[in-house]
Design a protein around this nucleic acid. Structure first.
Lengths: 179, 179
DNA sequence: AGTTTAATGTTGCCAAGGCAACCATTTTGT
DNA sequence: ACAAAATGGTTGCCTTGGCAACATTAAACT
């Protein structure tokens, strides 16, 4: 195939240093160029960020990163239902439901049922939840600042724009696909 | 984009504070701007990508996304030890060890112990593993192509460069930090 | 030498989070 | 009006993957 030979030749060039230590000469067939494979980059970065964030927030504020994400959204949009949380943070409603129950039990949020719709609930931070939020956000912004400290202001803007475009284009990949 | 374009005033009842467009809550203090908060973007995108990839690869090729990542690395650098896999894909050695055991049992990889170092092992794709790899990579590249289809060639290059810089800068955030 | 220290994997344990089945309420279609 | 479908949440079950304790071997330092 054309794709095969083209991609193989392309990725071979930038690869020499990667296998300096252990890799044998792999050169038969198509391989990924891990220095340019975006899904791997994004997953790697996200995993490290989430793990590190959960460890840090848990240790210092007693909340994990999922709870922090929910709190940050509730600070922006008080009174939203759980379904809104799911769509914004991109999580399944199962974990969100359980996390909300845990946060309510710890007094971080208040849940009152919607009088207009017996299925829905209105969720908001309590005073305690807001106080926790106001402490965590300082650390969160500092973490983001450090993460982006390797980019100048213009590059940061560019990254945000590109990530937003990718974010809005996720349907092109998560949708149906034939093998 | 704002995901809020749906029925915004639905379950917020009469007190729906229409922070509809941009999510700034004037009543309170500091809040995140979720349209510009990079950690949230990256996590969201990575979760959707990984979930969708695992579902797709599992259904069509019988491998999950972790196994695929390991396979893609083994195709590039045959004969590496497990520690190398951990550092490249950013996973803990525990899951990697278990995944390798499962892949060996299914005949996808071969593991032989290093005669020079009794602790280390040399891991490589079998013929069957390589055959699976050669089928999956077609889908993987197509998925990446779709993901990036919202960017032109220059923007894609830019994104790769920026992500690599972030990737290499992760230590600034995962390292020690005081609250 | 011998004793500590470090590195490689394996395993136990646990939290995070997706999926599906389900219940309770609308909403819709006829 | 009433059955059918859709919607919001809850729960059970499962996979993924991190962390820590451990065994084994290699390296480093007396």
């Amino acid at each position: 195939m054309d794709i095969m030979s083209e991609q193989t030749g392309k990725s071979r060039g930038a690869k020499a240093q990667a296998q300096a230590t252990k890799g044998q000469d792999p050169d038969h067939g198509l391989t990924l160029d891990l220095d340019r494979y975006v899904p791997a980059f994004i997953t790697f970065i996200a995993n490290k960020l989430s793990n590190s964030a959960t460890a840090f927030y848990q240790r210092n504020f007693g909340v994990n990163v999922t709870e922090w994400r929910i709190m940050s959204l509730l600070a922006i949009e008080p009174g939203i239902p759980a379904s809104r949380i799911c769509s914004v943070i991109g999580f399944d409603k199962g974990p969100v439901s359980r996390t909300l129950a845990a946060m309510k039990k710890r007094g971080l949020i208040a849940i009152r049922s919607d009088p207009a719709d017996g299925r829905s609930h209105s969720i908001a931070l309590t005073t305690k939840g807001r106080a926790t939020h106001d402490r965590v956000i300082i650390a969160a912004l500092e973490r983001e600042r450090r993460l982006l400290s390797c980019l100048d202001k213009q590059e940061q803007e560019l990254l945000i724009v590109l990530l937003r475009r990718i974010h809005d284009n996720l349907g092109a990949v998560t949708g149906p696909m034939e093998p």
